[in-house]
Design a protein around this nucleic acid. Structure first.
Lengths: 338, 338
DNA sequence: TTTTGTAGGATTAACGTTAACATAGCATCA
DNA sequence: TGATGCTATGTTAACGTTAATCCTACAAAA
């Protein structure tokens, strides 16, 4: 039933020529009479021909399919990036296969396995928090890939990420320069390089300004995520012995802002808050959240570009792109309260 | 280089048997000596064999791949559903290919074409706002499909959606019974069946309570979306000659709530607001948004189930499932202000 | 005239897998 | 004893494409 699809052979029979000629006509091969070509193309359209991707890529060895392996589709940051990659790749006549780890890093190898099995031409990989053998696994299978969004210890891999250390520094400098001296730092999950870098950058900014590290109370990422899940972030904020909050990602800052306001605390008069990602898409807060970010979509665009170049020429030396960050000055940071 | 992949033939040579025997061993065919099977499986693992999906599905005619064609990955509602489908399908040993229309309904046929080309076993389709010939196109190609989330005029198609009319009624009844008499209705995009049904249900609830239709001011969906985009939803709310707002989806209600609060208007004391979707995942509002929804993930689960059944038996009569809705009573609705 | 070249196309052999059919070896049974 | 059946495998032919090679006119050049 489903096998009722029109094939090259069917068109060939209809046109009274060979399947090969049809193939050439449809692919625009030069050595073919124009009259033949137009007739074949017309017939193909009329018969509703759809090329069989499986057969094409089996034969040609190239699939024009890219897989993106992502941590979590609940995170808007990833959704945005994936969406953008999809657009970029479609323009270059590639398909994007989205594979989601559902935050379970042990799924990584299964998904890579799947990608290889699908003969994808390359993988856009968002490293999760664990180590895993995914790098070796991709290399073993000669699979071109680019790592995104996070720093990994391996320096032989192509990577694109933003300058999280500098981002942390910007956040720290911004707050300290507004007079803040005591901080609450709501972390991302441990072992994530973004978390480590942002925190380090932040602390460096404070050191540069002679603010002791003890002035920062750090809440572990796992604790933050759990509180977020259970909808009680307020407890994270106690005791309130600080004047500024740094949040690892916007989606943590939102509910925290609501908590504060609910308890009659004014932002930024009483407490300042700064975050990372700058996802102000659906505009869920007022004042706008002050947030550190990298130019919209540049990670996605560059990742795609680098992967395609790597596919083109596997012998390229590994490249490590670190994108600059900037601060979006919303209205959630202000001079330290007295 | 990439062609360096291990094939059945390689394993066969290593084991001194035929490729077919290897294939049988790996697929667990019964009539095969246990000793042979274990030896082959071991060798395959050692050699790092990954089956070639293209070849398998070309030969077998079945791909174990499902495509979901979705409107917009920026909309959390869709992200949630897609995520859930992915999990469901993975458990049943299917893959999900996510194809995104980027809100451009004219992409529909291109994406269906792509899905057919990939020999997917079926399509989970979220109809957009336009009509389009996508239905005929899928049928023409004998492609099993299920339509999701929206009502379409075609009754021969399998569909799963929630009872939007009843949802609208619930919203209207809830507000009217709290004493509200004048309303602002922030629509979804025109021609979307959800929009039409929700509005109709809402108006029916008012009629049942002898509230005249003139008491509802309706803002067109296109106007709403544009305001959302431009981050000025406040103007939509003028003049404020109502005591309750109905918002087509949660992501419209969020910024509206912020607008109101920013102008010193208390929710729900001064104005009540009710919405649809109940996306309180990242908890962006307090009080929680009162919202109409259908049991979490049931659309995704049922859609997957129905599609697989349709694939199994294409002769099944078409089924039209309408899921019941309920109201999540957050804190954004209260007695009408005096 | 014969040779050479070329345009336009046909034939054939793969790609990696699976399904159908074939076969060889051995045990069972009348 | 040979017919029968079963078990464990090998052989072959597809699936729909594409790449390489081969053919056949016919026109131009020698």
């Amino acid at each position: 039933m489903r096998t009722a699809r029109v094939t090259l052979k069917d068109i060939a029979k209809e046109c009274g020529c060979s399947a090969n000629t049809v193939s050439r006509a449809l692919r625009g091969d030069s050595r073919l009479a124009d009259s033949t070509r137009t007739q074949i193309c017309e017939t193909a359209r009329n018969m509703g021909y759809v090329p069989n991707y499986m057969a094409t890529s089996l034969r040609s060895g190239k699939s024009r399919m890219i897989a993106v392996i992502v941590n979590d589709l609940h995170n808007q940051h990833y959704c945005d990036l994936v969406n953008r990659m999809d657009q970029e790749l479609r323009e270059r006549n590639y398909n994007l296969m989205i594979l989601c780890k559902q935050l379970d890093e042990s799924l990584a190898e299964v998904l890579i396995h799947k990608a290889i099995s699908l003969s994808v031409d390359g993988i856009l990989y968002f490293p999760g928090v664990g180590q895993g053998h995914y790098l070796e696994y991709m290399r073993l299978n000669h699979m071109p890939f680019v790592l995104l969004d996070r720093r990994v210890s391996d320096t032989e891999a192509d990577t694109v990420r933003c300058d999280d250390e500098q981002g942390g520094y910007l956040a720290g400098a911004h707050l300290a320069d507004l007079g803040h001296r005591k901080f609450l730092f709501l972390s991302g999950v441990a072992r994530s390089s973004s978390q480590i870098d942002r925190l380090n950058g932040f602390l460096r900014a404070l050191r540069d300004r002679d603010i002791p590290e003890e002035n920062v109370r750090i809440v572990e990422g796992e604790v933050v995520e759990e509180a977020l899940e259970k909808h009680n972030t307020w407890e994270l904020l106690q005791p309130m012995d600080y004047t500024a909050i740094v949040s690892f990602r916007d989606e943590v800052a939102y509910p925290v802002m609501i908590d504060l306001r609910e308890h009659g605390i004014n932002i930024p008069k009483d407490i300042s808050i700064i975050s990372f990602d700058n996802l102000h898409r659906e505009n869920p807060t007022r004042p706008y959240l002050t947030s550190i970010y990298t130019t919209d979509s540049s990670i996605a665009d560059l990742g795609v570009k680098m992967l395609l170049e790597r596919i083109e020429d596997p012998s390229l030396p590994p490249r490590n792109v670190i994108l600059p960050v900037q601060i979006f000055e919303g209205g959630t940071t202000g001079p330290a309260a007295r």
